[in-house]
Structure formats: C-alpha cells, structure tokens
Amino acid sequence: MSISDLDPVIHAPKRLGAMAVLAGTEWVEFGFLRDHLGVKDADLSKQMSALVEAGYVKSRKSKVGRGGKTWFTVTKAGRSAFDAHVAALQSVVNQSTV
C-alpha cells in the first residue's frame, strides 16, 4: 500500500470525514453529519450524493419531523473502500518508522 492507493472518491476531506462517521455507525441523520463535519447543507448534500453515486453509501428518508429526515448508512463496498483507505494511510505513516 502507498499514497497512490488512496481512494480518489473518499480522499476529499469532507467525504472522508463523512465516511469515518458512517464507519462507526449503523445509521446517521443528515443534520448530525452536518453538525459534526462543520459544513453547510448544500455542500454536504453534494458530498453525500457523490458517495451514494459511487455505491459507498445508501440513504433513506424517514417521515419523522417537519419535511422528513434523511439517514445514511455505509455499504459493504463503502466499508471496504474506507478500510483500504485507512490501511493506505497507515502504510504511509509506517514508512517513516522503517
């Protein structure tokens, strides 16, 4: 593994942050992600659409609350991509200690 193995879809900081939150959870609500990543609604919406399009994230709407809420979960492919990305980062870190 090297820096060239870093996944371009999730390498962008906001998408990577969203993937990290999703990797530790079963389901996450849109507003929770927005608050923890410190991004605007439109920006997060764009980032999450890219992850959904890549097949790394699934979304569903719940009817609870005004206008409903959008919840996200990481897919098997998304978890594998995130784990591989973390492994690639770890190998970059380990190179300094060899």
């Binding site: 990577l16 942050g17 990290a20 939150v21 530790g24 959870t25 923890h36 980062l89 770890q90 870190v93």
Partner: peptide
C-alpha cells in the same frame, strides 16, 4: 516532502479515529 506526507497522514488517521467514535460518544 516525504515526511510532511507522513505527518499529515498520521494527523488524518487520528482525526478519522475521532470521527469513528462520535456515534458511541452520542
């Protein structure tokens, strides 16, 4: 340049670990 990448990667890994914990913290 090489070390800078390694330092950045280490900081990124630490940040990812924190973000992975937010569900448990909540």
């Amino acid at each position: 340049m090489e070390n800078r990448t390694q330092v950045e990667a280490a900081a990124e890994l630490a940040e990812l670990k924190n973000l992975e914990m937010v569900g448990f913290v909540e």
